[in-house]
Design a protein around this nucleic acid. Structure first.
Lengths: 195, 195
DNA sequence: CCTTTTCTGGAACGAACGATACAAAAATGG
DNA sequence: CCATTTTTGTATCGTTCGTTCCAGAAAAGG
């Protein structure tokens, strides 16, 4: 059936490596040179497998988004209450403030800030991904209000946007050098808004 | 006393023009070509007057920071209560969400997000500027708690970081396409944290 | 083994990058 | 008007950018 030489690299691993580079450098600042080094494949393979830099970034961002969304959904489903889910999420993010991982921030918020309201595919994908995060928060709020772990009365949409604001702000705070304990305090104040 | 040909441009105006370019594009993405076009001077003049791109950015960021700090201090001093100051600040930021100006965000938060924890002068200046914003918020909180417009009991430092988080998050929300009214709702929830 | 298919490495593309060098133009003080 | 000082425009530097192309290596099926 299939003829010819099979690919020697794992497209998934290569995409994961590209993702790390975009994560650390941002879209524009990630050069193809550094991408190639990290992905460990030749220029030809990159362009044949992923098209160009923009499409590679789109694939990486979508991969990041899907992985993140799956993890959030799973953790929300497994949490005893929606409130527990949100507290664990915010406190863990704050707690990793000093780590190398957290210094990178979140690829989605990074991209949204870098690309802003540009009219190209990467910028649109970044905005859509922020909206997807807000959508998960809305489901969490709806569940929390139904089960009583989050104060009722407030619009779930508004509260969800507030939580997205909180997470984005927390990441900016961490990127600005805020220590874990200080970030945790600020996150706790955000969570008080659920009462 | 002074001899020779006087400069034909205003260094302040040129710096202001450069600031707008950095504001719209970010540090790395702002090319010298676009800077020159905006500043309306020749390459030679730019490098003689400002040194290089990094120093030009530092000068622009410091100018932005000083202007911002002066405005914040002035508005805080003029406000009937610290609470009024914070409400006006957050609601005005949210209200301009659809405007062209707000789409640019805040140069300080933009730079902090772009440069992260890099070990060079621009990144350090960006982090310091975020800290300066937090310092203003702390003074506002102290005054608010003293006069009764902000709930006492909470640490001013923690509440100040919470407000910085709130403003940074609000700007990210706006950059992600959130409409003014929705941004206003989210900002209102942040301000409830002062009760 | 040999054909076919695909991957791979490296050279090369034009364009843009930040930065520098140099000569000509301009406007001042004397 | 002249000498001096500084600006200004342009040409150019070497580097890096994203991308394309092509010849050769490699591994499958027949």
């Amino acid at each position: 059936m299939t003829r010819g030489r099979p690919i020697a690299y794992s497209p998934d691993d290569a995409l994961a490596a590209a993702l790390r580079v975009f994560w650390a450098s941002g879209y524009e600042a990630a050069s193809t040179r550094r991408l190639l080094d990290a992905m460990q494949l030749s220029r030809s393979s990159l362009y044949q497998a992923f098209g160009n830099k923009e499409q590679l970034f789109l694939a990486a961002l979508r991969c990041y988004r899907e992985t993140l969304m799956a993890r959030l959904e799973r953790r929300l489903a497994a949490a005893p209450t929606a409130r527990h889910f949100l507290e664990a999420l915010f406190f863990e993010t704050a707690g990793e403030a000093s780590g190398e991982q957290a210094a990178l921030g979140c690829l989605i918020f990074n991209s949204a800030t870098e690309l802003g309201r540009r009219d190209d595919a990467p910028a649109r994908e970044a905005r859509d991904s922020v909206a997807a995060i807000t959508a998960v928060f809305r489901r969490a709020v709806e569940r929390g209000q139904a089960e009583g772990s989050i104060a009722p009365g407030r619009e779930p949409d508004a509260l969800a946007r507030y939580l997205t604001l909180g997470m984005a702000g927390l990441r900016t705070l961490i990127k600005s050098g805020t220590a874990p304990e200080e970030a945790r305090q600020a996150a706790a104040l955000v969570l008080e808004g659920l009462d």
